[in-house]
Computed example of a mutant assay.
Amino acid sequence: MERLASIDVCSGAGGLALGLERAGFDPVLLLDNKPIACETLRRNRPSWNILEMDLGDFDPTMHRQAYGVDLLSAGLPRVKSSATTKRVETGLELRLMKATVRLAHTIQPKALLVENVPDLVASPEFEEVRGYMESELACLEYRFHWFVLNAADFGVPQDRKQGVLVALRDRPYDGFQPPTPTVTRHMTVGEALLPSMSARGWTGAEEWAAQANRVAPTLVGGSDNRGGADLGLTGTKRAWAQMGINGAALSDEVPGLHGIQESDASGSPLRKLTVEQTATLQSFPRDWIFAGKKTARYRQIGHASPPPVGEALGRAVADALRSSASI
């Protein structure tokens, strides 16, 4: 089947782009302003055209291949509600949202895909943001699908809800259907991590896996400006503790024969996850390389869109585009 062309902005570690690649999209370029994220992308896909720059500085007239692509995709930094508008990052997040819409104005892709917080879809807190996006795109005759997906419904062992906007024109719009779940039973943390937890012969791995009998809480990368590599706020850490996991930090190694992790000096009876295990919970392939030190690698993983969700979205968009082309 003929491959489709895409542009991916705010690409991060490449979770959305990887899923779209599996769905039949080849990126003519990817863009991110973080050097560490661009290094990750280059290590895994040397053939991809990766631009390290701020989205607001991107001039598509210098990249003629960007015009008229099949899809513009954006896994944007999470916008915040009005309750947190005093945060410095909030202005940046909204600026990138608006820059994505302006880019769509310029290059006029056949479809636009934006992935963000679930509340973006219907919450009154984001009514102004939705209104801006729709009014700016409606003059180009785009029509809109707003919906929420949970990554757990697509085989990701994590309760991770994502708000999605898909905008298309006329015939593709009529043929688009939001993705339906690809699994009938959610994968648990124990099932996903048992192979790695037992890799060094830990005798308690099977018992631990039986206890970790639910999906993971949402992984969060945290702010680039503060904090270290932990698994979330107090309530989230309590949920991890119920599965035998110490969410206060990450380990450098999986448990050994007697469950000991040499890098863990906390004295806690709970086990810590490794960065590689968090990548498994985000459903990245085992051979996907994350650049940087431990905290930088974990933040890239926590901020990423799980590839299976990107693949499901990509297939839904591709089906709509191909069906309209055949009419």
Rank of each mutant, 00 (worst) to 15 (best):
P118D: 00
D119T: 10
L120H: 01
V121P: 01
V121S: 04
V121M: 05
A122Q: 07
P124L: 07
P124F: 03
E125F: 12
E125M: 13
E125R: 01
E127A: 14
R130Q: 14
R130N: 13
R130G: 08
Y132H: 15
M133H: 05
E134C: 11
E134I: 14
E134M: 14
S135Q: 10
E136A: 15
E136R: 13
L137H: 01
A138D: 08
C139E: 15
C139F: 15
C139T: 15
L140F: 15
E141R: 06
E141A: 12
E141L: 13
R143S: 10
R143C: 05
V148L: 01
L149H: 03
L149I: 15
N150H: 09
N150P: 10
A151D: 01
A152K: 02
A152M: 03
D153V: 05
F154L: 04
F154Y: 15
G155V: 10
G155F: 12
V156P: 01
P157K: 01
R160I: 01
R160Y: 02
R160G: 00
R160P: 04
K161L: 03
Q162H: 09
G163N: 04
V164G: 07
V164K: 07
V164E: 06
L165A: 05
L165R: 05
L165T: 03
V166K: 02
L168R: 07
L168D: 09
L168H: 08
D170G: 01
R171A: 14
P172Q: 11
P172H: 10
P172W: 07
P172C: 06
Y173R: 10
Y173N: 03
D174E: 11
G175T: 11
F176D: 03
F176Y: 14
F176G: 00
Q177V: 13
P178C: 03
P179M: 04
T180R: 14
P181A: 08
T182C: 06
T182N: 06
V183C: 11
T184K: 02
R185F: 00
R185D: 02
R185V: 03
H186N: 14
M187F: 12
M187P: 10
T188H: 00
G190Q: 01
E191D: 15
E191H: 13
E191G: 11
E191F: 09
E191A: 15
A192M: 11
L193G: 04
L194S: 14
L194V: 15
L194K: 10
L194R: 12
M197A: 12
S198E: 07
S198V: 09
A199K: 14
R200D: 00
R200N: 05
R200H: 07
G201T: 11
G201H: 07
G201R: 06
W202G: 02
T203E: 13
G204L: 12
E206C: 00
E206R: 09
E206H: 04
E207H: 10
E207N: 11
W208R: 03
W208C: 08
W208L: 10
A209I: 12
A210S: 12
Q211V: 07
A212R: 02
A212C: 07
N213D: 13
N213E: 03
